[in-house]
Design a protein around this nucleic acid. Structure first.
Length: 594
RNA sequence: GGUCCCGUGGUGCAGUUUGGAGUGCACGCCGGCCUGUCAAGCCGGAGGUCGCGGGUUCAAAUCCCGUCGGGACCGCCA
């Protein structure tokens, strides 16, 4: 006698030899049909896996097609001698069907559900039919893993006294950062909500409220152009704590990341190493260095201080060595020029170190004998290597070389794809010059926050950050995994006077600050506790954990690069009636808001 | 805003460089045969506005211009 749970007694993938002889009722989809005329085999798939169903009645089996949804009543039997399928968890048994009920027929599929090496499917088609794509084991696995990552983080946080709070998604537009998505307010024509770019201000208010420990798996919205790892809506694991210092937040962050990676069987050695922003930029030319390989940049500014070579007469000259790069063909070396130009550089100067130690290439002809003599040694290059140079402002040269370092590693196979290299990047600058370019001198007077406007200066910068903004350090920390920034946070400003001074450096007048952030400044009047926190890029973390090349793989219903949802066809026009009711055509009085 | 790549039966491709009949491959689909397959097999068949628009040409999937869609990257993303 079988006991049904819902429409079935068992899950297909969980049947074992222990069930042999018993009657079972299964529900699932036709993954495969192999019809031999007198006998037919159905691979029946449900969420738990697959089991082979045998149907001896041709009249029953023949009309069945891929992805029909079936209810099978049958008996579990041992497969006949020699018919086991070692590739299947349930490969030693099968279900002899006595009753086949078609719960739902399936139209012909736009693409095969079961994976075939010979039939890859474009992402565009997969996302257009995402509900079918998610029947595929690999696609579903990423979404299931994400659920477990959520659970792992919640366990760490709830076990530590954190309170999960949902903050508004209809909120106020803030002037800093990315472009807002806006929503018309029907009851106040001409006024608009904004969707939050992050719960930043709300979580700080929750600290003022005395919650002390907050977290949220928070949906965030930014109306910017997209990338493989960027969607218009995305998710952060957002955390904030009162009465903590940097080390406390970092330690908690490590526990969360550690719990997440242990889900895929990787134990992260703790503590995760830390590197300062300045050192990361100096050695790797990036504030999110990929430490799966060693290659480091070399500073050649002093070496070429008196050079006659015009290209190297720049505020900063740096180099990065490509091991074995001297054997690259002219065509490949040209491709590096295209690569550099695509990044906005004029080109990528290079020197080839011959097997005899002789320097070759156009740059080698343009530098002095003296400069040639010691160059390979200065850069740490060996015979057979290629040295790439970047010259310009320190920022642009290092950015180019940092990118070249990554590209060298990719082309040269220097990256261990199985490695996980974590690091904290700490002590970032508090401000950076707004609109710096190669041609404009630093010091135009306009500064912008490197992290965000609510990041506290480090204690040693607290007196001087507004008089010497260039050298002020932020009480901030980013966590980087394999060259991806997977989280970032800071100790926040909790004093109204400090917050006002930061706004002033950024060129925000007291009136503007009051207009935009008055509610925060007001809250800080009422005994705001020192606090800090961190936000993790949850989609990116889940993508890394599932081995996906794009965060789209860990988003149930992702959008394309144009912000288009291929499944629902959003965004879409609305009716005239909707426009009228929403008030989107309301034209405000030109005199108000500034 | 910019650079590059892609768009060909339902799916994934080849064909485009050097213009010549919608040509080919794999999977899927439909029909038939088939009692032990598991990417079942065998036989037969259907299925196309070569993204769209314009231009050049006797002739365009192929060359040119524009446009739309997808992807990667730069800018942007506090």
């Amino acid at each position: 006698m079988t006991t049904a749970v819902g429409l079935r007694t068992h899950r297909a993938g969980e049947l074992t030899e222990a069930s042999i002889g018993g009657e079972v009722i299964l529900c699932g989809w036709v993954a495969k049909r192999r019809d031999h005329g007198g006998v037919a085999f159905i691979d029946l798939r449900d969420a738990s896996g697959v089991v082979q169903v045998v149907i001896h009645d041709e009249a029953v089996a023949h009309p069945l097609r891929s992805e029909f949804c079936l209810r099978i009543i049958g008996t579990v039997t041992r497969r006949p001698e020699g018919n086991d399928n070692p590739n299947l968890a349930t490969g030693t048994i099968e279900v002899e069907a006595t009753t086949v009920e078609v719960l739902s027929e399936s139209a012909v599929l736009p693409f095969p559900i079961e994976e075939h090496e010979t039939t890859p499917v474009s992402d565009e088609v997969r996302y257009r039919y995402r509900y079918l794509d998610l029947r595929r084991a690999e696609s579903a696995a990423a979404i299931r893993l994400r659920s477990r990552v959520n659970q792992a983080a919640r366990e760490v946080l709830l076990g530590d006294g954190f309170v999960e709070v949902e903050t508004p998604t209809l909120t106020r537009s803030t002037p800093e950062g990315a472009r807002d998505f806006v929503v018309p307010a029907r009851l106040q024509p001409g006024s608009w909500y904004a969707l939050p770019q992050s719960p930043q201000l709300f979580k700080q208010l929750l600290m003022v409220s005395g919650l002390e420990r907050y977290f949220q798996i928070a949906r965030c919205y930014r109306d910017e152009d997209f990338r493989a790892d960027r969607q218009p809506e995305f998710t952060q694991l957002d955390v904030e704590m009162s009465f903590v210092v940097e080390d406390d937040v970092i330690a908690l962050g490590e526990r969360i990341v550690s719990a997440a990676w242990s889900l895929i069987g990787h134990e992260i050695p703790l503590p995760i190493p830390r590197i300062t922003y300045a050192e990361a930029m100096r050695r790797y030319g990036s504030d999110k260095p990929d430490l799966r390989f060693d290659l480091e940049l070399v500073d050649c500014t002093g070496y070429f201080a008196a050079t006659e070579f015009g290209v190297f007469q720049a505020p900063h000259v740096g180099a990065v060595v490509m091991p074995g790069g001297a054997s690259q063909t002219r065509k490949v070396l040209d491709s590096w020029q295209d690569w550099a130009k695509a990044r906005g550089a004029r080109g990528l100067a290079y020197v080839l170190v011959g097997d005899d130690g002789e320097l070759k290439g156009p740059v080698a002809k343009n530098i002095s004998d003296e400069e040639r003599a010691g160059l390979a040694a200065h850069c740490g290059a060996h015979p057979g290597d290629c040295i790439f140079f970047g010259a310009g402002t320190e920022r642009s040269a290092k950015a180019l070389l940092g990118a070249a370092r990554l590209e060298i590693a990719k082309r040269g196979g220097l990256i261990d794809e199985d490695a996980w290299a974590f690091t904290w990047v700490v002590d970032a600058p508090l401000f950076e010059p707004a609109g710096e370019t190669d041609d404009v001198a630093v010091g135009s007077g306009a500064w912008t926050a490197v992290h965000h406007a609510f990041t506290s200066p480090k204690p040693e910068s607290s007196d001087t950050f507004d008089t010497e903004p260039a050298s002020a350090l932020a009480y901030a920390y980013d966590i980087v995994c394999n060259g991806n920034e997977i989280g970032g946070g800071s100790i926040r400003i909790h004093r109204r006077d400090v917050q006002e001074r930061v706004f002033a450096v950024m060129g925000l007048s007291p009136e503007e600050a009051e207009e935009k952030f008055g509610f925060l400044l007001e809250a800080f009047k009422y005994g705001a506790p020192p606090h800090g926190g961190i936000a993790f890029g949850w989609d990116r973390i889940c993508a890394l954990l599932s081995g996906a090349s794009s965060i789209r793989e860990v988003i149930a219903f992702p959008k394309t690069g144009g912000g288009f949802d291929p499944l629902t066809s959003a965004p879409a026009p609305i009716t005239d009636a909707q426009r009228k009711e929403a008030g989107v055509d309301f034209v405000p009085d030109p005199a108000s808001p500034a």
